[in-house]
Design a protein around this nucleic acid. Structure first.
Lengths: 183, 183
DNA sequence: CGAATCATGTAATGGGTTACATGATTCA
DNA sequence: TGAATCATGTAACCCATTACATGATTCG
């Protein structure tokens, strides 16, 4: 039962396994349709992390005999305890927003105006699409998902609409010092 | 002039160096007061990355003779070209929002109500503080920063207010399926 | 003048990203 | 039945995180 510091990835895997045992591919699908919306995990992470958690005794594996010899992971009591402990402790970490578009905007003075306009259009569209997608998803899963998952989705929608509006305002000259005062 | 794929960190460093040559510590300070607000870089990254960029020929170093033997980095023409090329190319990468609080909310069904309430209070306060901080900062730098940097800050403020309101609504039962319809 | 903070690095570990590979299904 | 996609992994490299360390300043 080797000890190590658990990462966000660890808790994502543990959390997903509380719903039901799963293979890495199933984890990938569960993640992709939920938190993967705003926090990307590439599939190899979801193949690696369960191994580590197994080594730490937080999940157990069972490998198929024949065929593909798939590995199915199940959360252990220790795993549930670790997850519960994490949920109970205060979350004082800063939110990270990693947005290449925003980074480019920051250095906008170095870019040519045409590229900036393209950037703004692309970003507005991308965030609008994303918001639309979330709303469609919400309509689809409204019955199945629990309130917490729906709340997460709700914040996702609000976030994307906020950013969409920002780029729209930017394109229309409504972002700037001059207008900062009128709330 | 070794070739390698440039990362976001690379462009942050290159971009910061366009303002003026800088030591790693100065980079750290410039970053901390701007994009470091929402995209964290630990200081060793800003000591490592310039070395890599030097190896790639995108910046040049000059080391002090006496005293601390500080290294001062200057962006090269190749560096400017690389930055310009990046700014000109379309940005089709998904925004990443890495928020531990949101992750905990997602798994809220596994937590006890009291911990969830604490979480919500903490998050609301944290995001409010952050928004207030940004507004203070905007007031402070309004004259000095360029429009693009101010725009970045503006989005930061809108983002934090959105999230603050989300947690506030959550605490007041105003996030949920029932109310989804009334826009 | 001692403590705290500022400033400037290096080292080690491990997690994440990318790329490589290939066996199963599905579907035209 | 061939192509495309789904599914299931492995391997290597590199960046990011953490920890370690220590010399300069500042300030009470």
């Amino acid at each position: 039962v080797a000890q190590r510091t658990l990462t966000a990835t660890s808790f994502v895997v543990l959390g997903m396994l509380t719903y039901a045992p799963a293979t890495s591919y199933q984890l990938k699908r569960r993640v992709a349709s939920t938190i993967g919306n705003f926090w990307a995990f590439n599939h190899s992470q979801l193949y690696d992390e369960p191994s580590r958690l197994t080594a730490a005794g937080l999940v157990t594996v069972r490998r198929e005999e024949g065929g593909r010899r798939r590995r199915t992971y199940t959360i252990s009591d220790d795993g549930r305890a670790a997850l519960a402990a994490w949920l109970a402790e205060p979350a004082f970490h800063q939110t990270e927003v990693r947005d290449l578009g925003l980074l480019k905007l920051f250095f906008g003075s170095l870019a040519c105006p045409a590229d900036l306009a393209t950037l703004a259009h692309d970003q507005r569209q991308a965030h609008r699409d994303r918001a639309d997608g979330y709303e469609a998803q919400r309509a689809r899963v409204a019955g199945a998902a629990d309130d917490f998952q729906l709340a997460t989705l709700e914040l996702g929608i609000r976030y994307e609409r906020t950013v969409e509006k920002f780029w729209d305002d930017w394109l229309n000259g409504r972002v700037g010092v001059g207008l900062a005062e009128d709330r």
